[in-house]
Design a protein around this nucleic acid. Structure first.
Length: 1001
RNA sequence: GGGUGAUUAGCUCAGUGGUAGAGCGCUUCGUUCACAUCGAAGAUGUCGGGAGUUCGAAUCUCUCAUCACCCACCA
């Protein structure tokens, strides 16, 4: 068989992967030879499209761990699957529809969901194909999906897990335990997707904004003495005012103000606290009046010290309003436009006025029904409304005025500060998030966070690198209620049905009164259960209807209509159950018993809060156990300049393009070698190219071996041959060292150490030296030597394949198949356990070190003296100690060949014009009278000497310091002494050589 | 405002107390015998600045500077 010159990745990789799949090599438990299990749950990619470089990185690391454990005989499971990714996936489908000018609302919920399911199937296929290209050794028979088994799922549950039922079951359990509740709260509202989102899905970004200053006139034209004082209490300003000055970045929300708040200690406003002031916008005849109240929240030193309170559109104001019983008037609709519903403004304003005066109180529902947007602003987008409000107030002369700094003429202009403000944006929609008062479902996270914190504190669960623990704790220690309801269609629909309040319920019941007092809620796993519960409670026949309106129609019919909550659950609620859900929980499956808790979670730091923390909380809450032993948090992949890869920047490297160009192994090796903990990794193609070359190098080592009959009629051997020859004994020892390095590195998740150790070993020792050394051995007449060398090389190369396989699975499997008839595929080969203690021969190592040193020195002189590479030269041996002599005699042939030396002659002195070579224990010279430039040789030696002396100065300084001898560990002192002695000897040799040169010059 | 991390060769980065490293790039030389996706040789660093601890600091402490990221409600 003649091997090709290079590895054809494009041809071989799909073939090899198919071979593994066909053999069932990745199935859970395949190749298991011991009891211990090893399990990894893939962080499920979103079914939004394709995988990016971050996925390639993440999954390469998982695959390395998986393959490594599988080869070591662990009962191994790498569980694959995908995430339905609520908003993200719905967004993708809506974007597709938009291309043909259609919208989600053009479809029924069922029709639209069919489209999403199609998207899911398409994307799921892409993702699996991509992972296969990458070589991921997942157990595809168990492929899971976070919405598998949900209504409308065309694929059902091929992997055996009904994730949907598991999610619903958890919701019901947590509801019954009081860990989930419904309530009207101020939440982050995404006006584009028209849904609530959680705090984590909000990105706060600094943008250019404005702060407007307006006057809120006191009711009835009242006035007060406004006095400002400096720090010493001296009066700096005193004037009579008929208004209170307010600053705002969001003038349009003034329409919903319920009060103006000042700090209780603020003397400036003490005279007017408790009085009413006027919101300076809206029809003049229906100006709303609001009270001036005190609250700890306003900072007297910021702005005017007075804050308008808009409870329904600002998180701070919400808290103030709750404390002060201030009404919260919602101003916008679900799209973020000014409300256009309800009674005309004049009517609504009158009611609000009565409330402000204390003449009337409203229920939550009544308050929410009140639309206080003036008629001319109704239906406007919030930003358009802002402009109008500002214009109207300014036109009326109620803007605070300041001198125009840019104008020479004395002129007054409205006080509008340009400043950077933090604005919340939806992480998916990128539109400005609006705080909105809505009914939502929450997980009472505070109640379930305890075990998640304790487990990491006491080491039950390890987070690597350690620094990420802090991030984890910081968030969990300040946990907020988690809003889990989304006003979307794509997701797990909340298993709660509502019943009307008009119909009386009888007897004892566990139905809960809805938070807004408008009816009853029933939480059950299935509709049938919900109906049964409703029947019992209402004592009437129950009909399931679409919504509240439909239930009204049943009034007087003797039947009661209940309707299901239309909302779905936050995606992270279901992905939070990934570890148990993928193993078939709530069924008590074999897989669950065997593989849970899982061994390692490999994930990026960007989802520590979203996912890692939620899995911790939820696994403890649901099954009372940790989800995994170790969390390995890796860095983010960035482009060459360190920018985060994003489509909008156009700097995305598609892993498949790179795999096409360089092969999967090269991409994997690159990512692995850069996987140092806790840092971003910047990916460049030149690096990938370098590791592609590494694969070629390995390939050609096998070609060389093949040409030298290494694989002919070989018997596959796990143990190294009992070699006699130094070169063979040496490389066997080196192999044992690298095996240990690789295992140590992988056990500590130091992937880059493993990759670099293998790179240095395969290229720097096996190819650069061992293969070169083997050439004269293969040429030997001594059959014993050639046979031993063949056996050794076969074994060493096998070890290279085994050790490299987790990182470079394809090329190694291919070479494994090409280089022998094998009992097992490499993917299931036994991982070695030999140690340096077993296999390292110190004497052989010392000898080879000496051989390499002399070859290096001769080559170095040749290179620097510009000796033609092809020229065989003579070497004169001036002096050599016993060890050197022995090493020399045993390896003369190697040295002659690799250093291109013709002959070696002992000589008492160096001839005129010779270049000196110093090695440990000896001096040689190259008589190069015709070629050498004495000046250049002098310069070369002087430079070496200078460097040597610098080292020696340091060493002598240390050894001359009695404190060093006293305090430093003995072996360090001893090492230093030896080193100094060695360097001194070399110094002498160099000085002698220089003296010689001086004579001839 | 709080927190975390970074600063080492031209570039990208390893290196947690004991002789400063790798890959890429660069310079010179080399196509006979595995590999030009290669080989041989070479150049390049007061390890961000300053102070401290130590026999000894890239490494530990403090401080300053610059950069990055995360979290946070200043109207």
């Amino acid at each position: 068989m003649a091997m090709d010159k290079t590895f054809n990745a494009a041809e071989a990789e799909p073939r090899l992967y198919a071979g593994w799949t066909k053999a069932g090599a990745f199935r859970a438990g395949a190749n298991a030879s011991r009891e211990e299990t090893f399990s990894i749950m893939i962080p499920p990619p979103n079914v939004t499209g394709a995988l990016h470089m971050g996925h390639a990185f993440n999954n390469t690391l998982q695959d390395i761990l998986t393959r490594w454990h599988r080869m070591r005989g662990f009962d191994t499971l790498w569980q694959p699957g995908t995430d339905h990714a609520g908003i993200a996936t719905q967004m993708v489908v809506e974007r597709e529809l938009a291309k043909t000018n259609r919208r989600r609302t053009d479809f029924s919920r069922e029709e639209f969901l069919d489209l999403v399911w199609q998207q899911k199937q398409k994307s799921r296929g892409n993702i699996r194909a991509q992972l296969e290209r990458l070589g991921a050794s997942c157990d595809w028979d168990r492929e899971a999906f976070t919405m598998a088994g949900a209504p409308g799922d065309p694929e059902g549950t091929p992997g055996g897990q009904n994730f949907h039922d598991a999610v619903i079951r958890v919701f019901v359990d947590m509801y019954e335990k009081g860990l989930i509740y419904r309530g009207k709260r101020l939440v982050n509202w995404d006006p584009h997707f028209e849904t609530a989102i959680s705090d984590l899905e909000v990105e706060n970004t600094e943008v250019d904004g404005h702060m407007w200053h307006f006057k809120y006139p006191l009711a009835g034209g009242e006035t007060y003495e406004y006095v400002e004082k400096d720090e010493d209490g001296a009066v700096t300003l005193r004037e009579t005012r008929d208004y209170i000055s307010i600053a705002t970045t969001r003038p349009e929300t003034m329409l919903g103000d319920g009060a103006v708040a000042v700090h209780p200690s603020d003397e400036r406003y003490a005279p007017i606290v408790g009085k009413l002031c006027e919101i300076p916008v809206g029809p003049k005849e229906h100006r709303r009046l609001i009270p001036i109240i005190t609250d700890e929240y306003p900072d007297p030193d910021f702005g005017s010290g007075a804050v308008k309170i808009t409870g329904a559109h600002d998180f701070n104001d919400y808290e103030v309003a709750k404390r002060g019983g201030i009404p919260m008037y919602r101003l916008m609709d679900t799209k973020g436009a000014m409300r256009d519903d309800g009674a005309p403004y004049a009517e609504a304003a009158d009611i609000a006025l009565a409330v402000a005066r204390g003449d009337q109180t409203l229920s939550e529902v009544e308050t929410d029904a009140l639309n206080l947007v003036p008629d001319d602003l109704r239906g406007l987008d919030r930003f358009e409304a802002r402009k109008r409000v500002v214009d109207q107030i300014t036109a009326e002369g109620l803007a605070v005025m300041v001198a125009d700094a840019d104008s020479d003429a004395p002129a007054m202009i409205p006080f509008v500060e340009s400043k950077k403000i933090m604005q919340p944006f939806g992480d998916r929609s990128k539109v400005v998030i609006e705080p909105m008062l809505t009914d939502q479902w929450f997980v009472d996270a505070e109640k379930i966070v305890g075990p998640a914190i304790d487990a990491v504190k006491d080491g039950t669960v390890a987070i690597l690198p350690e620094q990420d623990k802090k991030v984890y704790f910081n968030w969990l220690d300040n946990i907020e209620p988690w809003c889990i309801s989304r006003q979307l269609w794509w997701g797990h629909q909340i298993p709660v049905w509502y019943g009307p309040y008009e119909a009386k319920i009888s007897g004892s019941t566990d139905l809960a009164w809805k938070s807004d007092g408008s009816g009853w809620q029933i939480c059950r796993s299935t509709e049938a259960d919900a109906v049964r519960a409703a029947e019992e409670a209402y004592g009437s026949e129950i009909v399931v209807v679409d919504d509240w309106m439909a239930s009204l129609a049943l009034k007087g019919s003797g039947k009661v209509g209940i309707w299901r909550d239309p909302d779905v659950l936050d995606t992270w609620f279901s992905s939070g159950l990934w570890p148990i859900g993928t193993l078939g929980w709530p069924e008590d499956t074999e897989a669950l018993k065997k593989y849970f808790p899982t061994s390692v979670l490999v994930t990026g730091f960007d989802i520590i809060f979203f996912w890692v923390a939620r899995m911790m909380m939820m696994q403890y809450a649901v099954v009372g156990q940790k989800p995994f032993d170790t969390v390995y948090v890796h860095a983010l992949v960035r482009d060459e300049k360190g920018k985060k890869m994003s489509k909008s920047l156009g700097n995305v490297l598609d892993p498949l393009d790179l795999v096409d160009e360089f092969g999967a192994d090269a991409v994997r090796f690159t990512l692995t070698s850069m996987a140092a903990m806790g840092r971003d990794l910047k990916l460049s193609t030149s690096r990938i190219q370098g590791y592609r070359n590494f694969g070629t190098k390995l390939w050609n080592a096998f070609r060389f071996a093949e040409m030298n009959g290494v694989f002919e009629g070989r018997a596959e051997a796990a143990a190294p041959p009992a070699a006699q020859h130094t070169v063979n004994r040496w490389i066997i020892g080196e192999t044992a060292r690298v095996r240990e390095e690789v295992d140590t590195a992988l056990a500590a998740f130091r992937f880059n150490d493993a990759a670099n150790a293998l790179y240095a070993f395969v290229w720097g020792r096996v190819c650069d030296w061992y293969l070169e050394f083997s050439k004269p051995l293969f040429a030997s007449d001594n059959k014993e030597v050639t046979e031993e060398t063949r056996a050794t090389m076969a074994w060493v190369l096998d070890q290279c394949l085994i050790l490299l396989h987790p990182i470079m699975p394809f090329i190694t499997e291919e070479l494994w198949g090409l280089s022998a008839k094998r009992a097992k595929m490499l993917v299931h080969a036994d991982w070695p356990a030999y140690t340096p203690a077993d296999l390292v021969d110190e004497a052989a190592e010392a000898e080879m070190r000496w051989v390499i040193a002399i070859i290096d020195s001769v080559r170095s002189v040749r290179g620097e003296m510009n000796v033609p590479a092809a020229l065989q030269i003579d070497l004169l041996q001036l002096e050599l100690d016993e060890a050197g002599q022995a090493a020399w005699e045993k390896n003369a042939g190697l040295i002659q060949r690799l250093a291109r030396i013709n002959s070696i002659t002992p000589s008492a002195e160096a001839p005129k014009g010779a270049a000196t070579i110093t090695v440990p224990g000896g001096t040689y010279c190259l008589p190069l009278a015709d070629i050498i430039d004495v000046g250049a040789e002098q310069a070369r030696l002087a430079k070496s000497l200078e460097k040597l002396e610098k080292d020696l100065r340091g060493l002598r300084g240390r050894l001359g310091n009695p404190k060093f001898i006293e305090s430093a560990p003995e072996d360090v002192v001893e090492e230093t002494r030896e080193l100094a002695a060695e360097k001194e000897a070399e110094e002498t040799r160099l000085k002698t050589a220089l003296a010689r040169l001086a004579e001839v010059a």
